[in-house]
Design a binder for these strands. Sequence first.
DNA 1: CATCGATGATAAGTATTTGTTTCATCCTAT
DNA 2: ATAGGATGAAACAAATACTTATCATCGATG
Lengths: 232, 232
Amino acid sequence: MKQILIIDDDENLGDLLTQYLARYEMQAHVALTPSKGLEMIKKLKPDLLILDVMLPEKDGFEVCREIRAKSSIYGQLPILMLTAHAEVTDRIVGLELGADDYLPKPFEPRELVARIHNILRRSGDDASMRDIKPIKGLDVDPSRREVKLDKVVLDLTTMEYELLILFMQYPNKTFTRDELMNRLRGIDAELFSRAVDTLVSRLRHKLGDTSKTPRFIKTVWGRGYTFIGEQL
Amino acid sequence: MKQILIIDDDENLGDLLTQYLARYEMQAHVALTPSKGLEMIKKLKPDLLILDVMLPEKDGFEVCREIRAKSSIYGQLPILMLTAHAEVTDRIVGLELGADDYLPKPFEPRELVARIHNILRRSGDDASMRDIKPIKGLDVDPSRREVKLDKVVLDLTTMEYELLILFMQYPNKTFTRDELMNRLRGIDAELFSRAVDTLVSRLRHKLGDTSKTPRFIKTVWGRGYTFIGEQL
DNA sequence: CATCGATGATAAGTATTTGTTTCATCCTAT
DNA sequence: ATAGGATGAAACAAATACTTATCATCGATG
């Protein structure tokens, strides 16, 4: 379960988000002031920080700057900034200070969830720590985002790589299309198209897999897909 | 068949949705006023409530709040709110009040269906919760939708799996053919044919069963079928 | 701002499942 | 035992789900 720290003096919003994020397997914690927030970072070691710009004591930019300056303490904590106004200058300043993304208030909860997933994915911290099971014929180097199939490096796109990693985390689990979409895109994305099928097809192709006699990705008719690579 | 209650004073929209949802195995009922709506909830025990924000008497937020407040009466009924304007603030307020999702009008019917599915999925209305009795020689893993017969994984189609699960929920119960048809297809399906017999036959075959000396599925002549697997 | 690659949508083609028909066989009541 | 409806299962047909080629779109890159 992902731990999210929210630094925002609007207690109401904090509770709301806590409740909302819980639905997406994220545990949120709220700090009402920057000083409390910084404390909680050390204790909680959250996976992501949601930081409001308007804060008591000092503003969010200040906090962000501080966290980045003391990276020895706080690490490369991903930061999502919330700003009251959708002003472009805010955005640039925020990004320059090292925030990973920015979201103008008011925002849609769904949008927030989507961005959180994006950041977590991008920050790679996510991917490298994931528990990838060893599969015969496949060598994954998460730090390099590199996959070798029978000693040959594969040229995978972001989505293809993510899909493969997801499969390798749960060999023999049958994923429905919804599940895959949600895990890959981070939102309750609905499928009005064969996007997942297409993605699977492309990955299969690069893995040298055929749908009829699959070595890795098996189609489970009427349900979804299963990764069946022989485990080492 | 899922029961959906719609509280909306636009009768036209209600009829339209009722018709549309029927295609997705959802039976919709329309209440034109909040008071009628609340009454119908008690009677119908719907699986989901679609609630318009603009209503006579009191608005949708009020209704939502009331339902959540009286959860002892209404339970944790999932609520999908329809708002006239796609205003973000509305969304936040609604979520705060306990609605499970939001959909701004006008919306696409399929988008509605998608969100309904999401909510129902989230609210844990899942097949995996069904109470499957342990049967000697059969191992079922509902989360993976996998069945093992004497340690060997069976390759079952959706219908075959559903039929088997149904049987395993009620060992020794004799099902008539219409009963099976209704439980599997969720509607009062007319028996034009011997679809059930064929299905049973195919499942039997995969279970290694013979109709003469059945290990699992016994034919009750003139009545239907009984699952007789030895219970553990 | 033009290009390129990645991803999403569409649609034609293919495969699989599910329903129907059929007929041989089985059961039960005469 | 036999007639007549009920059942099993094979073969065929229809419906449904999947694959993949192709095109459109979007965002990144220079």
